[in-house]
Amino acid sequence: MHPAPSVIIFSTLSGLGFGLLFWLGIDPSPPTGMTGFIFFAIAYALAVGGLLSSTFHLGHPERAWRAFSQWRTSWLSREGVCAVGALCILGLYAAALVFLNIHIAFLGWIGAALSVATVFTTSMIYGQLATVPRWKTPLTPALYLTFSLAGGALLSGRTTIAIALLLFAAAVQLAWWQRGDKALANSGTDLGTATGLGDRGTVRSIAHPHTSPNYLMKEFVYVIGRKHAMKLRVIAFGLTFALPLILLLLPFSHIFAALAVLSHIAGVATSRWLFFAEAEHVVGLYYGMR
């Protein structure tokens, strides 16, 4: 799959933003006044910045409002509804905390639930696609949710919870990679089933429909950088989990905490790039590619 920068930026930043909003929402003694303002400003900048970024890959961004209508069937529509719901409700919650010094706990809980729901719906956009066997697994929502909650805990300074969640997310990431490498082969879909000619012999593509790559090949058959996939996995794993964990276990310092957050963000972005670049869409089979 083509790794569109707008979608990678969106899922990295929004995931962290909604993760932070979740922890702020369920906090029994959330930050108020100026401290509260800074926390919520960071969370909103990440969540809204990511959402805006995701509209850049649309053919007609001016029609994006229509995307709230089909929540009955579409995970993308559900994501939009949950995101706007979370941002509106937590906006009221944050305003009460920052300006009135009032903690309206039930708004925080509803907002936190909607924040988690947003991340879940994002993950299901990918996790529902039978056409990309590497994504079609309950491990995909597990991956997005653990990344988001771990990143949010890290950003909000919850050291103990962050360490536990980073370890858990690391395990999910390893399991996701492990399963993903066999997913296409295990799906049972190959050029034989794609053409319906597989029971007659070995099917091989001898001529593409056109002489140069088309939209389908550019969107679904992305092979650039796959040869570096293993190195990038090591880099992603080191930056997302190993380095932040070491920094968190050292005696506390604001510098170390900031470095842990930056390292984590860079790592998640690398992991998300791999999420797309390594994913094989079955339409590639028709072109004798994957």
Partner: peptide, 20 residues
């Protein structure tokens, strides 16, 4: 009504949809 998000092309296993 199409916003050109491309998700329907992702969901089609046959490569039947193309974003102009």
């Amino acid at each position: 009504s199409c916003i050109g998000c491309g998700l329907c092309a992702w969901a089609c296993p046959y490569g039947a949809r193309e974003l102009d």
